[in-house]
């Protein structure tokens, strides 16, 4: 048979529904995690820049710890470590928790850069009109910061989507694990793994295009 290795087209067609289901799970985990990560990251990002040494220290420690350790280790700490501390989570919850904590740290840095990209005069103008710091942040600075960081957030989503394959080690039936399970019963590696790669690409490629598009739009807006 012509093709790569043991690629089996019949098998490929048969496993498509399973892979699609796995991709859906991957998308679900990534979306939940990025949403919680966004909340966590926005708070942490603000804590990084407010003039309060305690908040600065906590947020910096969190960001440094997450960025300086492998995601795989973080996932295992949440899944195997927490139960020893008396906190037993189902794998799905542990997975989302680990991914959220992880993306929260990266998003915090994106948010911090985004806030700092908004000219100081915007905050001053808002305050001079009688807005409180919180109102000025909420209605003036953050909307502009989010507009500026949309591409960076998109890239973070893509990165997280790929990294979520590590959840396979804690038995979550996401795309990568689906592929591995098919391999385990068929003893054919090429077919399911190429399928897995293909599904990842089908998710990441349109997203990258979207990010490029957003980047161009914002670029045009800024220069005007």
């Amino acid at each position: 048979m012509v093709g790569i290795g043991q690629f089996d087209i019949d098998l490929f067609i048969r496993i498509l529904p399973d892979l699609a289901y796995g991709a859906l799970i991957t998308l679900k985990f990534t979306t939940f995690s990025i949403l919680f990560g966004l909340i966590l990251g926005t708070i942490t990002g603000i804590f990084r820049i407010v003039r309060n040494p305690i908040l600065n220290a906590f947020s910096t420690a969190y960001v440094e710890f997450i960025r300086g350790t492998p995601l795989l280790v973080q996932i295992m700490i949440v899944y195997y470590g927490l139960p020893e501390a008396g906190i037993r989570l189902p794998p799905e919850l542990a997975g989302i928790l680990a991914l959220s904590i992880n993306s929260g740290a990266y998003i915090a840095e994106i948010i911090r850069a985004g806030i700092q990209s908004v000219p100081k005069g915007q905050m001053e103008a808002a305050r001079s009109l009688g807005m409180t710091y919180v109102q000025a942040m909420r209605y003036v600075v953050l909307p502009q910061a989010f507009r500026n960081i949309l591409p960076a957030l998109g890239n973070e989503f893509i990165a997280l989507l790929k990294d979520s394959s590590l959840l396979s080690v804690i038995a979550i039936a996401e795309l990568t694990r689906m592929g591995m399970q098919i391999y385990a019963v068929t003893f054919n590696a090429w077919t399911p793994l190429l399928g897995v790669a293909l599904f990842y690409l089908m998710m990441t490629l349109p997203l990258s295009r979207l990010v490029d598009y957003a980047q161009r739009r914002i670029g045009g807006h800024e220069s005007a």
Partner: peptide
Amino acid sequence: RQRIGIVFQQFNLFSHLTALENITLPLRVV
């Protein structure tokens, strides 16, 4: 600050809002 208006050299209009929204935002929020 509501009783003391200030206008800056660099305008400092809120760049994500229209002219109208620039004026309505502080009226509504403050």
